[in-house]
Amino acid sequence: MHSQARRKFWIIASLLAPALAIYTVFMIYPLVGTLQTTFYQTDGKLQVFAGLDNYRKLFFEPLFSHQLLNALGNNFYFFFIHMLVQNPIGIALAAVLSVPTLRFKGLFRSIFFLPTMLSVVVVGFIWQLILSPLWGVSSGLLGALHLGFLFKPWLGLEGTALTTLSLMSVWQNIGIPMMLIYAALLSIPDEILDAARIDGANGWELFWGTKLPLIMPTIALTAILTFIGNFNAFDLVFATQGALGLPNFSTDILGTFMFRTFFGNNLQQGDLNLGATIAMVMFFIILVGVSIYLFVVQRRITSYQL
């Protein structure tokens, strides 16, 4: 008995060791070092211990707290658009793709996933070209539908830029929930589905009554991945709207706020201590989300063994 427990320990340890080693050395160690700097301030070549002063600055000096609140608000908006648009559409696409009688399945799936494979440089370029008021792609398309009056320079207006950007991001990332849900749907054994069909369920009932409960863990997974991805987002905003979240900070999210504070932007010089402090705030926000997922949601949702 004792030796069996020991054997089990060694199996677990050997399974975990390579992943934990690489991960700890190349991820945790560098990050811990950086996050330590949040308790210091830079003075020339020296790092001077400053206690919680960076946090005080970030939370209570209007100059920074306004930017933080603004970025936080924008980030939540960014996240809600993804939850409202990206994930439901992703689930719907996956559900349709998993219908056995659907034709051109592979073609559709590949096309739907195509945007997800692009780099943000391409995505940024594509949409700026399409949405630009100068080159007439979207105004031309709208005009052809007699909807030309709807056209606006969306990416340039404070009221519409963030929504536009969120939708660009949805367009790019929709492949992720779609593929995950699709993989989950494929994993459902035919016996279960056949049993439901024999009970007289039609396609609609089959999805809502049988498949959906079975893929709930995956749906929760896509939600938490969306949350993490959105609160860490940076590249797309940086590529299309710059480090300042133009126009007028209306697309500024935590990632861009952190980047420009950490590395500086144009004439503004970088402050790596304050930048790391913002990263720490991002860390805690995501930590709360992931903890809820790991300790509450994952426990509540029944994981059916198939």
Partner: peptide, 14 residues
């Protein structure tokens, strides 16, 4: 140009 709010620097160059 109309829509100059969304006209970037390289758009102007073009």
């Amino acid at each position: 140009a109309p829509g100059f709010e969304a006209q970037g620097y390289s758009d102007s160059q073009q």
